[in-house]
Design a protein around this nucleic acid. Sequence first.
DNA 1: CAAGAGATCATCT
DNA 2: GATGATCTCTTGA
Length: 193
Amino acid sequence: MKILRSFYEQSTVDVARQLLGKYLVRKHPAGTTIGRIVETEAYIGPQDKACHASRGRTPRTEIMFGLAGHAYVYFIYGFHYMLNIVTEGKDFPAAVLIRAVEPLSGIALMKKRRGTEEPRNLASGPGKLCEAFAIDRTLNGSDICGKVLYLQDAGEPAPKIITTPRIGVDYAAEWKNKPFRFLIGGNTFVSKP
DNA sequence: CAAGAGATCATCT
DNA sequence: GATGATCTCTTGA
C-alpha cells in the first residue's frame, strides 16, 4: 500500500519513527529499485540549528516550507546528494532525512551504480543510498506520493527502534544532542550502529 | 582497525 | 570566500 500524504503531515518525530520498516520505491528507466528503510533523522523547524531552514526562508529551503510529502534533495560536500521527505504543515519547515535502506529489489542495478558487490555497502548511508537509487537534483521538489519515487507500507510489524543523537551536526549547539536519529535495532544495513 | 585527509560545488555572507 | 545532514582511500599501530 502506497503511503498517503496525510501520513507525512504528522509530527516529524512520529514520521521519522514510523518510516522505519517501510519500503522506498524508485522507478527509473534503467529499472526499479526498492529498499527497506532502516535509519532516519528528523530536522524540525526554524529553531533547530541543524535544520537548513533555521537560517531563513531561501530558494533552497523553500521546499521545506511547502506541503508535506514532497522530496527535498540537495547536494553537499561537492559529492553527495541527500534525500529528505518534507513533513508537517505548510509554512512550518521540517523534514525527515532517509539515512539508510536495506536493499530488497534491483540489487544488480545498485551494485552497478555503486561499483561494489558488497550488499552492506550499497545504501548504508545517505549519500550511498542516493547513488544506489539514482536520486539527484532533478527529483528535488517532486511529489513523494507520485509514481517515480514513493513509499510503501509493507505491513511489517513495528520494528525495534533505537534512538541516538544525529550524525555530523556538531555545529548545531544544544540541538546536536537531541535524540532525533532513529534506527532499527540489530539491523546490519545502518550507516553506523 | 582507527584516524585523517582530500575530493569539489551549491549556497549563503 | 567559507563551509557543509558524506564517502573513500591511505596511513600507521
